[in-house]
Design a binder for these strands. Structure first.
Lengths: 211, 211, 211, 211
DNA sequence: GATGAATGAGAGTTCATTCAT
DNA sequence: TATGAATGAACTCTCATTCAT
């Protein structure tokens, strides 16, 4: 309660931001379901329970609306995945790498292939013509951020002698590729199974010889 | 006389198909550059040097136009890649696998990541809302076909003892993933370099022990 | 204050309805002059002094526009004719029926054959293919309503012994047919003359014997 | 067989006319079902089993096609009705007019209200905007021709003292009106019943006093 | 700040009509 | 003469965006 009324300003501002976020979330859902051109601002307004001009008050035009909706969702997805990668921190530096990697990588695989993550990637690519830099922006917020966090962990493992010496950035790319690639071919496969096979292959290629 | 008739017919029929293909090719180029909604049929017609209704005579509506343009290009890309994979036939069954794989995989990497291939994948995903089955259709024509051809080659290599025993389908997926994944992170990287690293990792994981 | 509000609301609401009615009236005039297909929504908008989408805001599409324009005019025509028929109320129950019927039937004849009434009937029939129920709807609003009012009057006359006993519905149909029929053959004839002949024949057939 | 091959010219010419008439008949059926604008020349061609340009070879453009199709059907309808009216010739000049009129008028009623007759009247009115003189042309070919034939018969009856002296043209209009009018109000009524009531009323108004 | 109403611009689609064969 | 193919011209409808309240 205290926080609710802490300041008149705070409440208003929070209210504004909430409404803005509600619009963005509804917009993202609609864009994901129907694509940019099929989704009209009218519908976004309805979904958020406001009138059309209100949408224009918060997001200046349809393009901003799209961009911000996608980037906002990308941040969410990126944050989720990075949080999982960072759980590799302690567990993975000792013990059998296979055991240490297994569980987190499975979780990463699931998070990286859930509905929202797919939608973010799709929307970023779909309108590459209209938003030439959106794909890069989303990549920054998701893939690169995740790769970076993962490379950190792999570097520590290599330093600890649990992986053979390697370029950690490239190793991370390879691990993520092994995670993502097979789902291209079998969209209905179980991410966990894919993950286990990926770890297997990754360790055979990158594990230290005496492992 | 026979040749006259057949030529006459052939010319006509060929003429029709040529025009149709010209429309599809122009459409694909425009769709790739601007996306589905931004591209108007008028422009497609201009690009192909015909009038708008002619486009409608050959392809029933804008949606068919898109679908057929994308599928036609997908067939082209698939055929190119499969042809390269099939060059692995002779070279790869003897000698050092590294040497045998290196060149064709580099070529595959380039073919798999050229402009047209990118565009095909992008257009298939971009309008998943409007064409729910197009992505699958394109996957069938490109990725799955290529994976299948590659799995054939890898199976022969495994049989020849040049790879460790493995599920050739999964091995193919992994090799292709190692080829494709890193380009997601560094779109400007050199496909050849990527390819070499991919082969390196692949062989460390899948090569027979005494290699 | 109450009046202010109600006026304000009234003005707004009235303004909306006025604009809607203006669109319908303009549309009816154009449809009558050129037919459904020849009239484009653009012109309707111009005629009403609004922009094209405004027409679509008020009437959902061209078909609704047509239907509502015709039905609205039909209501007008029906109301006019019924009002005339109801003037038969007092005059016709005593005195010479010929004298009592003469004037109102002349007026009815004119009202039933004025430009708007013709147009309504024509537009209802013209697009019977596209609007299979419009003809019935218009008949309900005009002919049947008028017949019903006229049958009421004739029933009273029969009850008063001024007409021979008869089915008033059928008698009304016959009177109206005698009024309308001849104009089919001579569109330029004077409705009043036609009316007098109709009354003459009607009374010879339906008048009480001692008249 | 003889007539089939009587002359090469005859056959050809007959073939031409047959094809032309087939086109007109198909066109009339389609126009009746869908209206002028909804019917496209393509469909008319299909219905007649020829290619589109063939239609243009026989009938110069869509407007001629419509006009000629409607007029041709109008001639058919008019001829049928006139033939029936002319059966009044012998029967009606002696004996009870009621008996003499009854049957032919029933038949006329049916012929005047069959599907084709309705369609002809509808198509003539429907496109009054585009073909300002078509309604008059059709009226000439149907209503006026029938009225004229009927007036002839009624004149003979009057001359024979079986009807009171009257303007036969007007009397014919009135009889036809009594026949047609009630069907406006009850499209599903039985034409024969209507006809009987019409004859009843007509004779009460126009019958000679001592009948 | 939020809304109902209005609009300018533009796109897909259809069709009568004409060539070239 | 009959046709397959091509086209110019329209027209319906939609939508992002802006006023006035």
């Amino acid at each position: 309660m205290g926080s609710e009324v802490s300041t008149g300003n705070g409440r208003k501002a929070r209210g504004r931001d909430d409404r803005r976020q509600a619009i963005l979330d509804g917009a993202f859902a609609l864009f994901a379901r129907r694509g940019y051109a099929q989704t009209c601002v009218q519908e976004v307004a309805q979904e958020a329970g406001v009138a059309k001009p209100t949408v224009y008050n918060h997001l200046h035009d349809k393009e901003s609306l799209y961009r911000e909706a996608v980037e906002s969702a990308a941040d969410r997805v990126g944050a989720r995945c990075v949080a999982i990668v960072e759980q590799l921190r302690e567990v993975a530096t000792d013990g059998d790498p296979r055991a240490g990697l297994g569980v987190p990588i499975r979780r990463l695989s699931r998070a990286y292939h859930d509905e929202e993550a797919f939608a973010v990637r799709q929307l970023a690519i779909a309108e590459a013509g209209r938003f030439p830099d959106l794909a890069a922006s989303v990549r920054e917020r998701t893939t690169l951020r995740i790769r970076s966090a993962l490379a950190d962990r792999l570097a520590r493992l290599a330093l600890a002698g649990r992986l053979r010496p390697c370029d950690p950035e490239l190793a991370a790319e390879h691990l993520l590729a092994l995670l993502t690639g097979p789902l291209e071919y079998r969209p209905d496969a179980d991410p966990a199974t894919i993950a286990d096979a990926a770890v297997e292959v990754f360790l055979r290629a990158y594990g230290s010889d005496h492992a």
